[in-house]
């Protein structure tokens, strides 16, 4: 039997191949959507703005994902967390999945895995435990989209309201979650203050864009508000924590 190494070159290569595959898919869809948008008469400048804004917005959450890789790597080495967090998953799923598999095998997650069978079991659980979304999308997305289109055809205005209501439902759930700890005392209010600061920064950006006509800021309002609120969370936590 080969010596087992959590960070072996072999595991890095396998993970790398899969990451390259996902990258290729992103490039393929980007290319197709970009061309189609141009065919429909959307200007290159608006598409470039969308691309720049999306890239700028992505930076902070992506760095937070690296933290997730670090957390998992103490237990699983680098290749598996690198792969899992570059594709499909999110730390909110991967950590419980790894913990559950470790518990089933009776191993601790506080130190690196040394037994290859434990490792392969965890890799299997992390892979199989989260496939439902992708399977449903692969098989039924066409049906879901046809449903939405027929809803819009029957009543366009209601179709738009329906889609708005969907994401307001999502935003409400996350806003509610921010208030989960307020009964624990002042410290529990920290996320609420951070949220309010982020909202306030967004309003300030809105003022710059709409009143002072600082047009470039429109594309970066979300990352500016987000990073500003994250930065200010540091003194707020010092003050209240």
């Amino acid at each position: 039997m080969r010596d087992f190494d959590l960070n072996s070159m072999f595991l890095f290569i396998v993970a790398g191949i899969i990451v390259v595959f996902v990258m290729a898919q992103s490039i393929f869809f980007l290319y197709k959507a970009w061309n189609r948008a141009r065919e429909l008469g959307m200007t290159g400048s608006i598409l470039k703005r969308v691309a720049r804004a999306s890239a700028a917005f992505t930076v902070a959450p992506a760095i937070a994902i690296i933290l997730g890789v670090i957390t998992l790597s103490k237990f699983l080495g680098l290749p598996l967390p690198w792969l899992r967090l570059s594709i499909l998953g999110a730390l909110t799923y991967e950590l419980p999945a790894a913990t559950s598999a470790a518990a089933a095998l009776g191993v601790s997650i506080s130190e690196g895995v040394t037994d290859p069978q434990v490792y392969s079991t965890i890799a299997w659980v992390m892979t199989l435990g989260i496939m439902s979304g992708l399977i449903i999308i692969t098989l039924f997305l066409k049906k879901i989209q046809e449903g939405i289109q027929s809803l819009k055809k029957r009543d366009t205005k209601w179709g738009d309201i329906f889609l708005n209501a969907l994401f307001l439902g999502m935003i409400s759930a996350f806003l509610g979650m921010i208030f989960a700890d307020v009964t624990t005392g002042l410290e529990g209010w920290i996320p609420v203050f951070v949220m309010l600061i982020s909202s306030l920064l967004m309003l300030v950006c809105g003022f710059f864009v709409q009143v002072l006509k600082v047009k470039w800021m429109e594309d970066y309002a979300l990352p500016i508000s987000m990073l500003g609120a994250m930065a200010l969370s540091i003194p707020i936590t010092k003050l209240l924590g």
């Binding site: 902070a60 959450p61 937070a64 933290l67 935003i171 996350f174 806003l175 979650m177 921010i178 920290i190 996320p191 609420v192 951070v194 949220m195 309010l196 600061i197 982020s198 909202s199 920064l201 967004m202 309002a221 979300l222 508000s225 987000m226 990073l227 609120a229 994250m230 930065a231 969370s233 540091i234 707020i236 936590t237 924590g241």
Partner: peptide
């Protein structure tokens, strides 16, 4: 604290 508060910072805006 900055990373702990990434979701409030995102959803507030």
């Amino acid at each position: 604290p900055a990373f702990d508060n990434i979701l409030p910072a995102l959803f507030g805006a």
